[in-house]
Design a binder for these strands. Structure first.
Length: 272
DNA sequence: ATGGTAGCACCGCTA
């Protein structure tokens, strides 16, 4: 008999762009993919109006919800119980952009919705861009202060609103001055990643010369034909859990669903 | 070179 058992853990992250508008798609995704945990961003709803019951009926009875009216909002929906939940104030504007849980199995999960940052890539001219840079620095500080815990099993997921690699965007040259791919953002994201020695789960399985995206604009006439995507949605694994990763996928086909979000889920599996 | 779409709230904001 084995003295320790290995369990599969499947985690998904998805910017849903209104959980109430797309509740049927959430149900379809959960039935299709059967993740143990789904982290949502841009739920766009206060906690009292969150569609908890339909999600509970699908088996996701453990719900850590942090929302606000009309904008932002995050949630963690789980079949596994939580040992604890917490929200951190990375956001100086007081937006609902972080939800953290520790699962019963000891895995700690942080769900982030990093500010998009507006259109002008200059923190002096654009307060929203300044806020985004501040938020990324706050993430770096938070995990730098906890670096002694990097060998614990910790995951960071969410819409980080930065496409760090050249192959994370459809045209590196044309996006260098477009918010999400500017050097100042990719540098700060890299520093946040280095602060806890995070492993980028998608890039652990997909080589850096291969283009891969998780978001396609609503403004394209044909998102699939033009394929001007960006990889804004990420799963990061701590040194303590990275070797447990067994797969990742970005569920591109969901961008073609009726009433699709402009983001598609990233799904990882681990043996923990 | 520009403008294109979507959701929510409320007649504009954010993405």
């Amino acid at each position: 008999m084995r003295d320790r058992s290995v369990a599969k853990l499947k985690i998904a992250t998805w910017n849903i762009n209104s959980v109430r508008h797309r509740i049927a798609l959430v149900a379809r995704f959960l039935r299709d993919e059967q993740p143990d945990v789904l982290a949502l961003q841009e739920t766009k709803v206060t906690d009292d109006l969150f569609p908890a019951d339909p999600i509970r009926k699908l088996g996701y009875v453990h719900q850590a919800i942090h929302g606000q009216k009309a904008y932002h909002g995050v949630a963690i929906l789980s079949r596994l119980p939580f040992r604890e939940t917490s929200t951190q104030d990375f956001c100086r504007e007081g937006h609902a952009r972080h939800m953290g849980v520790t699962l019963q199995n000891g895995v700690e999960l942080h769900n982030f919705y990093v500010p998009a940052g507006g259109d002008i890539p200059d923190p002096v001219l654009n307060g929203k861009f300044a806020h985004k840079l501040h938020f990324l620095q706050a993430m770096e500080k938070f995990f730098a202060a906890r670096k002694s815990r990097k060998n614990d099993p910790v995951l960071l997921v969410g819409d980080l609103n930065v496409a760090p690699l050249e192959s994370d965007v459809w045209s590196h040259k044309q996006l260098l001055d477009v918010v999400s791919h500017t050097p100042i953002e990719t540098k700060l994201l890299g520093e946040a990643q280095a602060a806890f020695e995070w492993t980028d789960a998608t890039r652990r399985f997909v080589p850096p010369d291969q283009k891969i995206y998780s978001w396609w604009s609503y403004r394209a006439a044909d998102w699939e034909a033009s394929d001007r995507g960006r990889r804004l949605d990420h799963v990061w694994a701590s040194p303590g859990i990275k070797d447990a990763l067994t797969s990742q996928k970005i569920v591109k086909r969901m961008r073609g669903w009726q009433k699709a979000s402009d983001h598609v889920p990233v799904v990882v599996e681990l043996d923990v």
